[in-house]
Design a protein around this nucleic acid. Structure first.
Lengths: 195, 195
DNA sequence: TTCATTTCTTAACATCGTGTTGATTTATTC
DNA sequence: GAATAAATCAACACGATGTTAAGAAATGAA
């Protein structure tokens, strides 16, 4: 059920079922808050027997959680490949990878960050980004004010997620490269247009 | 039911019932995702007859929506009192009001922005802030790049909400004045600590 | 205070989604 | 091809839902 035996994910049927369920969920989430998506209608949308759902997940929350864990693990692995930057480096490369990753997982991101999405997912990915940014750029700390430092990176990581949200739902989205460059600009040169 | 007759809100019993329900909801949301808070347990927590709930709300989603609408209307009224700033003004005053408002409605904010909160509320309040900031500082637009301008303010408004989140859940929160000043700094002087 | 009005309570009801079961069929791996 | 594992199907008890009608309690206005 919640046990992910080795066989469970290598079996093509399992992958198929889970994929169908995930796709159906993302589709339904475009129109309905996932609070009131029932297991019944999810399975009907996926054309999967309702009993089968319970072979994989405890309930819909559990399903979302598993999906989130998987994607967050990938995300963490990705941003941890970046070595601490040299003093003059900008976080271009890190941002680029982050935005590319969002691009590759557009459907999932759109569902979980959309208007019927999951706030806890937003918080988790934001916190991962924030922690990593702080680790990578800890040496640039203006030592006098630690609290301020915390708020700095809360602002930045939230801002970047804001960029992703705006980007995901814009009619004709720019390539990841452009957004990454923009994010770098904002973080390096400051955000105020009047500057 | 969903009809808010004039009498409905002036009657003390109505105010009492709705207040009890809201408090119970916020309390339950500290521990449970509001997906799986049932009407039954909510009413038991509020010590309100279950039938009474349905005199006020269609379901829990409807309840949350009504609460959000009310607070968002107040928020919008608040930020619309601010006249367009003179060219050299910083958004201190606007930020200060925003953070004070969050402080006054701490329980509600903590519930709706907490880990079991509502992403659509986050989006709405962010979008209101963003629109207002753009209206107030439209004249500072660096005309060459409109898309960039959009992203600018997505970044800023998300960043500010990020500050609020970090602030709400920090063990001993600073006064609103200090956060407002910090937000202004970030927006004016740029975010990068190395500067 | 009194009285008409409105809200809250109580209990009962049919309905629907839930989560589980056992038997059967289908698909996959080796 | 045979053994294994997953998906289907039908059936089940259970609990939350949303609604109803009648009675009790609280309210605001005269």
């Amino acid at each position: 059920m919640t046990t992910l035996s080795a066989s469970m994910k290598s079996d093509r049927r399992v992958r198929r079922t889970r994929q169908l369920l995930a796709n159906a969920l993302f589709t339904l989430m475009k129109e309905k808050s996932y609070n009131d998506i029932t297991v019944k209608e999810l399975c009907e949308a996926a054309d999967i027997n309702r009993g089968t759902f319970y072979l994989h997940y405890k309930d819909i929350d559990d399903m979302v959680e598993q999906i989130e864990q998987e994607i967050l693990a990938q995300f963490e692995a990705l941003i941890c490949t970046h070595a601490p930057a040299s003093p003059d480096d900008a976080p271009d490369r890190l941002f680029l990878d982050m935005f590319r990753f969002a691009e590759e997982n557009r459907d999932l991101y759109a569902a979980l960050l959309g208007k019927n999405g999951d706030l806890s997912f937003l918080r988790k990915i934001k916190e991962l980004s924030r922690r990593r940014l702080m680790e990578l750029y800890a040496d640039r700390l203006p030592e006098k004010d630690l609290v301020r430092f915390d708020y700095f990176y809360s602002f930045i990581s939230s801002g970047c997620i804001g960029l992703i949200e705006h980007w995901l739902f814009s009619p004709n989205p720019e390539p990841a490269e452009k957004i990454a460059a923009l994010a770098t600009d904002l973080v390096i040169a400051g955000v105020h247009p009047a500057r």
